[in-house]
Amino acid sequence: MINRHVRVAVVQSAPTLFVKQSALDKITSLTREAAGKGARLIVFPEVFLPGYPRGLSFGVRVGSRSHEGRKDWQRYWESSIEVPGPETNILGELAKELEVYLVIGVVERDQEFSSGTLYNSMIYIGPDGTFLGKHRKLVPTGSERLLWGQGDGSTLTVIETPFGNLGGLICWENYMPLARTAMYAQGIDIYIAPTADARDTWQATIRHIACEGRCYVISCNQFTTKATYPTDLAYYGDIREDNDVLSRGGSAIVGPLGEYIVEPLYNKEGILFATLDLDEVTRSRFDFDVVGHYSRPDVFQLVVNDRKQEIVSKMAYSD
Rank of each mutant, 00 (worst) to 15 (best):
R4S: 12
V6N: 03
A9M: 01
V10F: 01
F18K: 04
S29H: 04
R32I: 04
A35K: 07
A35M: 14
G38E: 06
L41R: 03
Y52K: 02
G59M: 09
V60I: 12
V62R: 11
V62G: 12
G63W: 01
R65V: 15
S66I: 13
Y76C: 08
W77N: 12
S79M: 03
S80Q: 12
V83R: 03
P84H: 07
N89A: 10
I90N: 11
E93P: 08
L94C: 04
A95C: 12
V100S: 06
I104D: 03
D110F: 00
S115Q: 10
S121R: 10
I123S: 00
I123K: 01
P127C: 02
H135L: 14
R136E: 11
R136D: 14
L147V: 01
L147E: 02
D152K: 02
G153L: 05
S154G: 05
L156W: 05
P162F: 01
N165Q: 06
L166Q: 00
L166F: 09
L169Q: 08
C171L: 09
P177I: 01
A179Y: 04
A182M: 09
A182H: 04
A185F: 01
G187P: 01
G187C: 03
Y191H: 15
A193Y: 10
A196V: 13
R199E: 10
H208F: 14
I209Q: 08
C211P: 00
C215M: 01
C215P: 05
Y216F: 15
Y216R: 00
V217R: 02
I218P: 10
I218W: 07
Q222P: 08
T224E: 13
T225E: 10
A234G: 03
G237M: 00
G237E: 09
D238C: 07
I239D: 07
R240A: 15
N243S: 01
V245R: 02
P264Q: 04
G270M: 08
F273K: 08
L276E: 03
F288M: 09
V291T: 14
V291F: 10
R296S: 15
D298E: 15
L302R: 06
V303S: 12
V303Q: 10
V304R: 09
K314P: 05
K314W: 12
Y317G: 07
